[in-house]
């Protein structure tokens, strides 16, 4: 019986004993992105503010770590920039979905799965739009 699963029944979200599905993946992604922003994001954000408050030399050091001379991002800048914006948009979309779940809505299996997958689509689209605007959107103005 153990290997006969009724696919119409919901699955437990424990990572080690059930196979991956969209709903539990969004849940753990929400936690990972939140924890990442709370640690890495907070340290970079506070460093940026302190550097800006300290003067041109300190701010120049901050920029040197993430950009090349022309002002464009280097590899480190892209890794942290895309990593943090993708984390933010994913956490935001998943968080909005969570507010609906808190009302008792969106627990029907099919709709729950669809909105779980939509948070990934929306997060990737928003991140791509953000960076497209930063990189190409300003050349005309």
């Amino acid at each position: 019986m153990a290997n006969v699963r009724n696919t119409a029944r919901p699955m437990s979200p424990h990572l080690s004993i059930w196979k991956w599905g969209p709903s539990m993946a969004v849940s753990i992604t929400h936690r990972v992105t939140g924890s990442g922003m709370a640690t890495v994001g907070t340290l970079l954000f506070v460093w940026w503010l302190v550097a800006l408050a300290s003067g041109p030399a300190a701010y120049g050091l901050f920029l040197d770590v993430f950009t090349v001379k022309s002002g464009a991002l280097n590899v480190v800048g892209y890794v942290f920039g895309i990593g943090l914006t993708l984390s933010f948009f994913q956490h935001m979309c998943s968080g909005i979905r969570h507010l609906f779940l808190d009302q008792g809505a969106n627990f029907e299996l099919k709709a729950n799965k669809t909105t779980a997958q939509l948070t990934y689509v929306a997060a990737i689209v928003l991140t791509a739009a953000f960076w497209a605007f930063i990189i190409w959107g300003k050349t005309n103005g």
Partner: peptide, 11 residues
């Protein structure tokens, strides 16, 4: 972190 951030913005 919060105190440092807010102090920097105020400064």
């Amino acid at each position: 972190a919060g105190t440092t951030a807010i102090f920097s913005i105020l400064k």
